[in-house]
């Protein structure tokens, strides 16, 4: 069908095309890196019964990290403190940031809160969140008639 475009609708059409292209790329490469909406960036690993959330938090101590799990959300809070500099120190370069941070991640299922495990090693936090038993899909055996 032939449609006439006013100049405005051409832009709308281009926006639509852009969205369509983004969607296509997402479908073909779902492992494409997303931009983290806050600090820290998180990776989520999944198998059938649990998810593992990892985050890089260099320079923090395990006691500086606060984790909260509520049903289907994981909240990570913490603070990275600046180095204590000796008197008279002069910076040549300062690239490492510091400050308070908090991020909440929505999980794909209800979590068994008592079985959540977290480790912190070499500045990498790893949280294992098992799926709650009542939330697991019921397996149905197929009988041969």
């Amino acid at each position: 069908m032939y449609r006439r475009y006013s100049p405005l609708s051409i832009w709308r059409e281009m926006d639509r095309l852009q969205r369509e292209m983004d969607r296509l790329f997402d479908e073909f490469a779902p492992r494409r890196l997303r931009t983290a909406p806050g600090f820290p960036a998180m990776n989520v690993w999944a198998d059938e019964e649990s998810v593992i959330v990892t985050a890089e938090l260099p320079g923090l101590d395990s006691k500086d990290i606060q984790l909260d799990v509520l049903d289907g959300t994981l909240t990570l809070r913490g603070e990275r403190k600046p180095d204590e500099l000796p008197e008279g120190a002069r910076f040549h370069r300062q690239e490492r940031g510091y400050g308070k941070f908090a991020r909440t991640l929505e999980l794909p299922f209800k979590v068994d809160v008592d079985k959540v495990k977290a480790t912190f090693k070499n500045g990498v936090l790893q949280v294992t969140l098992p799926r709650a038993a009542e939330d697991r899909p019921k397996k149905i055996a197929i009988k041969v008639a």
């Binding site: 494409r32 890196l33 997303r34 990776n43 989520v44 690993w45 999944a46 593992i52 890089e56």
Partner: peptide, 11 residues
């Protein structure tokens, strides 16, 4: 992690 697949990546 062993046996897990990457579902979502930011870094």
């Amino acid at each position: 992690p062993d046996g897990y697949s990457l579902a979502f990546a930011e870094y």
